[in-house]
Nucleic acid binder design. Structure first.
Lengths: 201, 201
DNA sequence: ACGTTGCGAAACTCAGACGTATCGAAATTA
DNA sequence: TAATTTCGATACGTCTGAGTTTCGCAACGT
């Protein structure tokens, strides 16, 4: 009460290790990145990989799902800078960010989880979607709406359909495309293909 | 050796029940359709749901994965009849088949598994892909190539990109579209959107 | 009739993982 | 120094599910 009293009175005793907390979350994400599904993740494996006692985990999270929620929540969406020179360029930037992420094992597996286990762990996904995918959706929506306003894109374009075309085409490549990473120019090719369409002339 | 000797000599004893086998595979697919991932499926749950002893399962499959491989292999791809009147119509038929399947819980969950657990169970997926998705890919590829030949589609169209655009756009809707099923006219809208592209005029 | 094989049910062993409790050591406050 | 809290490690009891075995019965050939 005398010296350190800024807001919350620090209780006596050894303080919790920030490093341990970070190591736990890191280990969790690493294991997810190694292809583990939510139901295959074990607290014991996480503790072991983090070099931490199970106690230290249970002192912070009451169960496995809580831990995973927090771990996924730390994944932020580093949206690319948009040059704004043209809708095409901005879309390419956004799509290329997707391409680069598809090469990262961790992001890739998180995506897998998001797509397949959303039904089973709804509150886990609710939080993750809000944190990680909503910002990207909004960014792309804004670009498309801008394009419609400036006349670069069809005036009668359904914005949701446009997003589905671009993101879906890219998603398809990340899923069923060649194993060894995606070509660097794929983003450009995808955007041009979608902008132009398949019909002749 | 006297009467029934057509090719394989039937061994003595009670023959294996076809019905039990069918019930086992059905129960497996049902549980998958209820949202269970591969690692959450239990032999005991399958046996219980099928009204069958575990023995009967292990007599046929040596482990869980073998059973799931066989179960998924029985899912056939009922490709739609293609009218052949136009590339647009044929594509709509193919995409609408995807839409209808997306409403079926079982197919939906199988798709989830295929997309997220392919890395973890490679031989499971190898077989499933060959059986279930290759035929559809081939059908769509044939339609697109025909369209290029007849001039309905751009001569310089990348066939793989075209497939990615159509299937990916539809995939996007099945994943992040409205919860209560997809609109009946979605296939038509998707195909027209992809054919036309996003660019103005 | 009789031997053989499959059947469902139940009991069993074994491994893995959960979540808790306990330990001595370390870090911090008073 | 004393009290308090966390640390990593380890042991513990419990539970779930894999895969095996046993049992009495049913279905099939000879």
């Amino acid at each position: 009460m005398t010296i350190q009293d800024s807001g919350t009175a620090r209780p006596a005793g050894r303080p919790r290790s920030e490093k341990a907390e970070k190591a736990i979350i890191d280990a969790t994400l690493d294991l997810i990145g190694e292809g583990m599904g939510v139901s295959e993740l074990t607290i014991e494996a996480i503790a072991s990989k983090a070099g931490v006692g199970k106690t230290t985990i249970y002192r912070r999270w009451s169960n496995k799902e809580d831990l995973i929620v927090d771990a996924l929540s730390t994944l932020k969406a580093p949206l690319p800078e948009l040059s704004g020179t043209s809708v095409r360029d901005d879309l390419i930037s956004l799509v290329d960010a997707m391409r680069q992420e598809s090469g990262d094992l961790r992001s890739r597996c998180v995506m897998n989880i998001a797509m397949s286990e959303a039904d089973r762990y709804p509150r886990l996904m609710e939080r993750f979607l809000k944190r990680a995918v909503e910002p990207r959706r909004e960014a792309m929506r804004a670009v498309i709406e801008l394009g419609i306003a400036t006349g670069e894109l069809r005036a009668d374009l359904d914005v949701e359909m446009g997003m589905a075309m671009i993101s879906g085409t890219m998603l398809w490549h990340t899923k069923w495309g060649p194993a060894g990473g995606l070509a660097p120019d794929l983003a450009e090719r995808v955007v041009d293909a979608v902008l132009r369409g398949m019909t002749a002339s």
